[in-house]
Amino acid sequence: MTLRVHDLRFAYRGDDILRGMSFEVPPGCLAAILGENGSGKTTLLRNLNRLLRPRTGTVLIDGAAVAAMSSREIARHFGYMPQRQEAAHCTLFEAVLLGRKARDGGWTRRKDVEKVEEILRLVRLEHLAMRSAAELSGGELQKVMLARALAQEPKVLLLDEPINHLDPVNQIEVMSLLHAVTRELQVTSLVVTHNLDNALRFADRFLLLKQGRLLAAGGKEILTPETIREAFRIDAVIGEVGGATVVVPTLRGVRSHGHLEASGHVQEHVHEVDDHVYDHDHEEPGRKS
């Protein structure tokens, strides 16, 4: 299901957040949305499924305009994972079932139960099905949220920083799961992330945002030191490590905190920490400053 976005604009209290974005993402494609804080990544996602109303522009799924859909219809087309999600107190099974029932209502049918079961297998959480969602670890909760979005049987998946708070192993697990289901179910996936390395490893396409505009869109080739400097205002080295492409920012361009050192605050602070807290561990204080 191809997602077509044309000249999408959004303003909030007079500030232009999205200044005309046009792009296309085909089915089975995992697209990473990259850009610095405030570049409009989250706003873009929320405008696609109309959690926010775009000022102008169109969003089409296989030619059908999202603007003309009811909220239930939108839920049939888009699965969405918000940036922050606190778990409610229900079983994991019911948390996933909610993806179908909130949009359909009514009794739980056998078909619903089978679908939930199939998805729980897919994300490898079936052994936890009857556990409370509130007891899950961060990585498990993210998988549950993904499973719930999949239970909606969406054509497009919108995920806002799904791996932000996860440890490296869970980051890779969630991203590779996402990569696999995107292929397997032929959905169109858009992922907002700050993790360039994982984006490079798992995404097929990249949307590089800057100040509400699309700086570049395309495959890996669009991520060059130049575009990264333009988008993130840092210098970076792009290279291969163990078969994976990695982006390593250099410290050039990072705002210096010399004014603190000059005033003596930092030095004093480090000194203090050194003396009192980390008496026996002199490697730690550096992190504090």
């Binding site: 499924n49 959690l51 909220s71 239930r72 939108i74 839920a75 049939r76 888009f78 699965g79 969405y80 918000p82 999600q85 606190e86 409610a88 107190h89 229900c90 019911e94 909610l98 993806g99 029932k101 909130a102 949009r103 209502g105 719930r148 909606q152």
Partner: peptide, 23 residues
Amino acid sequence: FWKGWDYNAMTWGDDTARSLGVN
């Protein structure tokens, strides 16, 4: 009673409930 699922969706927060199709 009929809207039970909608209220369940509400316990996950407004954004999630809306994305699940609840007005």
